[in-house]
Amino acid sequence: MASAALRYTGVSVGYQGVPVLTGVDLDLRAGQRLVLAGPNGAGKSTLIKSMLGLTQLLGGTATVLDRPPARARGLAGYVPQTGTLDADFPVSVRQVVMMGRYRELGWWRPARAADRDAVDRALDRVGLADRARHRFGALSGGQRQRVLLARALAGEPRLLLLDEPFNGVDAVSQEAIVRVLREVSAAGTALVISTHDLAVARELADLICLINGRQWAAGPVGETLTAETLRRAYGGAAIEVADGRLVVVEP
């Protein structure tokens, strides 16, 4: 039997006892792509961080890779938004990707050939092998996001968590990221991707989880992204257009 990448039952998460998001039920298996969709401030980042035990579990039960979330740190790959990082930080692309190997290396063990190979492969995969020696901050926003993806891939995770990976990302980088995400999920890695972009959600998701303070709907894309669930999650701002696709206008 395939083990669960993620199993959430009636989960509430928040900070310092105050819930940000309630009623989350998730079941994610190897190779599946789960998209967390919802407006800004819906609790998407909080939910992703809860999968590593970095936000407080206030109710329900949660297991990640068949263990308590905090024990999954380092086993699951985490890709932060590039915008949250200091672009002026004096660090090379290669150094950033090598951080993906720190779980094996610990505080002080020197990098070995296997680590360097993993870094090379990951950089190659996101199409930035020729930028290894560049300063991280000198790259475009989209390229930086791809570097952060490469960093997570270098750790060879069974579960990959991406927080708004398409925010401020150019079309070329978005395409590259989508391609890589399809490849790694085909190879058996489970993915959790948060986005407020419903077009991307539709393109990428096997499963979708629509949240805004609570879980409004979860399941296969077709059943989940309906005008009604969107209207509820987005607070009446969803409108339907002629070809059956939904567009959300933030109120």
Binding site: K49, L52, L54, R73, G74, A76, Y78, P80, T84, L85, D86, F89, V91, Q95, V96, M99, G100, Y102, R103, L105, G106, W107, W108, L148, R151, G155, L161
Partner: peptide, 23 residues
């Protein structure tokens, strides 16, 4: 400094990422 340089660097650059990596 030497024993912790790599971890310190990671933590300085990306605290959330470092915590997620189990540091």
């Amino acid at each position: 400094l030497l024993v912790a340089v790599r971890a310190l660097l990671f933590r300085s650059f990306d605290p959330a990422g470092a915590a997620a990596a189990g540091l």
